[in-house]
Structure formats: C-alpha cells, structure tokens
Design a protein around this nucleic acid. Structure first.
Lengths: 215, 215
DNA sequence: AACCGTGAAAACCAAAAGAGTTTCCGATTA
DNA sequence: TAATCGGAAACTCTTTTGGTTTTCACGGTT
C-alpha cells in the first residue's frame, strides 16, 4: 500500500521533470519507465494513459503552486512590500518553469492540458497578483493609473524571455540578481510619488543614487 | 550562389542549436525547416540526410573548437598562467555544451558521430590540455606526481555536473564564478610547493587567507 | 514443495510519426 | 512567355510509440 504510493509518486515526479525539461511529446513512456527502473506495465497500473499522466502532472503542479501562494498570502509576519516581493519571485519561478518550447509542445499535443494551465494563470496567478496591487493602492503605495494586468504582462514577458536557463548561463549575473532587478524595476514603476519618498530611500538607496546619476 | 551559402549556413546553425538543445533524435527535420521558414525540400537540397546534417554539425563544431584552441595556444601576449586559465575556460565551455542528454541520444542514434566527438575529445582536447600541464612542469610550476589525464577528468566531471544550465539557474552564483572556482581549485592542486609561494600570494591573496582560516 | 502474486523485460499490435521523395502551384527571373 | 525555384502539401515506406499481452523469475505464503 505504502509502496504503491511511493511508486506512484516517483512516476509523477519523474514525468514532471522529464516533461518540463524536454516537452511532453518528446519524452516516451518507455523513457520514463527506464529512468525509474520499472516496466511500462507498472506505469499503466497507476495511470491509464500518457494523457492521464500529463493531467496528473498538471494538477499536481497547479496544486503545489496554489499552496505556495496561500503560504505567502497568509503569512502574517510579512509586511506588504515583502509579501509583494515574495509573490513576484514565486510567480517568476512558476513562469520560468514553463519554457516556450514546452508551451508549444503542450499546445500542439494536449491542447486541453495547456488550456487548463493557461486558465489557471489567468484566473489565479494573475488575480493573486492583481489583488496585491489593489491592496497597495488602498495603502496609497501604488498608482491608480497603471493597469495591474498590464504590469503583470510586462513582468511575465521579462521573466519568460530572460529567466531561461540557457540565457542565464551566458549572463554575468545570477538568476536571483535577475529576479531582483526585474522586480525592482516593476516595483518602482508602480509607486505613487508619495510612496517613492517613503520606500526608495529606505530600501534602495545605493542603487537609486546610481540611477539618478545616469538620468 | 551567395544566397545558397547563407541558406546552407542558416540550416547548419539552426540544426546545431536545436540538436544541442534537445537531442538529435528529438528534433525533426520538419521542425528545423519550420524554424527557418523553408521547406524540407530545401534542406535536402543541401544535406542528403539527417545523418549528413549531424555530421556537418559535428565537423563544424570540431573545426570551430580547434580554431579556438589555436588562438589560445598561439597568443604570444599571454603568460603561461593566463593561457592555462583561458584554455580551461574554453575546454569548459566546450564540455558544458554537450549535455548528458545529448550524449546519450547521440550514442544511441548516431554512434559513429558520437565516437568522432569522443575521439576528438581524447585526441585533441585532452592533449592540448596535457601539453599545457607538461609545459608547466618544465617551468617548475606544476607537480610531477599528478597525472594530467586524471586532472582533466576531474575538471571535466566537475564541469559536466555543474555547468548545466538547469542547475545554474538555481545557484546563487554566475556561470563565470563557477568556472573560476573550479579552475582555481584545480590550478592550486597542480602547483609545486615552490610555485605556491610564487603564485598564490600574488594572485589569490584574499581568498587564500580565508581558506587558511578554515584549515 | 507447490502455489500465487507481482513486476521487469520482452514481444505484440495498431496507429502515428518521421525521413526522404514527389507533386502542385505561385512568384520571380531572364 | 518560358523556365526556374522554393514553399507547402501530399505521398511512400520505415520506424517509433502508446497501450496491451505474454513470459519468466523471484519472493512470500501455505
């Protein structure tokens, strides 16, 4: 019984890793079985088809993402700015795991799985983010004249095009530095004038001075 | 005429990029054609088969690597240590481009292509590196009691397991920092006791103090 | 010792996919 | 106008893949 759970989870983990690395259609069920050291028959004992497997992978990834969001949102020890930073980092990690290559593969071969992920992004990720921005507006930190969906799209586009492992290995910066830079740029673009005087000197003084010199 | 050369080179570049990213067998000729915006027929106008294409890719990569080596070896402005550093960085870049995934794919699907690359590694890369180490021995910089093939194997193993784009994106360091660290460790391990007093205080003083504190 | 259940490995089957080839058609060139 | 070229699609043959079944060996139980 317990052993069945271990095997099932192992299949799920390996499939997730392989699909996310190489694309759904480019990874065979034989390869997944071989990587784990089990037979194809055992995989089909737990998952009725390759499609069933990618559905399980998708459901699991979505559930884990949602758990991560809840942890951030419900963490009462975080101040607002830190919560936003964590949220953006978390969103960035989620987005960067879905390479263009994988998205194209999913769209082409399992459009319903892709539409579920796409819907999850729209309905949940974007809304979690949007509600944080609206909270910032209430606190007078964020401007009213910038659409939060647009902001997230700018952010998502930056992440998707830069936090690509192959590009990262060529850059003279770490992944974290890239996240921080992108988040900082977005964050500062969101601030009201008043909030700028409150937040920028306190948190970002060194870098801000350098930027004013350039302007 | 000129246009034919451009198209042929474009095919070669795209195939190289795709094969190296995703593996030989997992990239279809259709996909390469589609990425370039040409028809499959045009690809077969220049390359008689998919195998012919991977052979051309291999020959080109080997030729470019060999050119890089020659540039380093024949650069008379480099002192010995700098030449070694450049050589190791160059070797590292070459090694890191060949992921385990691609190697397995080549071994399985085009064993003769893999054996050509493997032979190139053995006959050329390892010998370029080895001759540098032997030169260091003549200069009294490197120890006599360490086998240069073994050193390169240690280096190659470190590179292959760390300079993987997916791992790099999780590390709090840049690719360059990883190279530098690996190269430094190998380099210091190669030095004679006498050369340590010559080279370490001059080039590596800050980090060396920190290491002595830990010992 | 005999039996049973299990799972890896291999074989199997039907459909799909891919390499390589040919055809069709429109655009361009001489 | 005729010829050429190349994209797109269709075609052919082979291979591969998803899913299923069979074989066999092993371990556990009676």
């Amino acid at each position: 019984m317990i052993n069945d759970t271990v095997i099932r989870d192992r299949i799920l983990r390996t499939a997730t890793e392989q699909f996310y690395s190489h694309g759904f259609s480019k990874v065979t069920v034989d390869e997944i079985a071989s990587k784990i050291g089990i037979s194809k028959k055992t995989i089909y004992k737990f998952y009725s088809s390759k499609e069933d497997l990618i559905r399980a992978v998708t459901d699991t990834v979505i559930a884990e993402t949602e758990t991560g969001f809840r942890d951030i949102v419900e963490d009462i020890h975080l101040d607002f700015v830190e919560k936003l930073r964590k949220m953006m980092t978390f969103v960035g990690i989620h987005l960067s795991r879905l390479s263009k290559y994988l998205i194209e593969d999913l769209e082409r071969n399992t459009p319903h799985v892709w539409s579920k992920i796409s819907e999850y992004r729209t309905k949940n990720i974007y809304q979690h983010f949007g509600s944080l921005i609206r909270e910032g507006r209430k606190k007078g930190i964020f401007r009213n004249d910038i659409d939060e969906q647009l902001v997230l799209m700018i952010y998502a586009n930056a992440i998707e095009n830069i936090i690509n492992p192959n590009i990262l290995s060529q850059l003279p910066v770490t992944a974290n530095q890239v996240y921080e830079t992108i988040i900082k740029v977005i964050f500062e673009g969101l601030l009201t004038d008043e909030a700028r005087t409150r937040y920028l000197p306190k948190e970002l003084l060194r870098n801000n001075n350098r930027q004013q010199d350039e302007e």
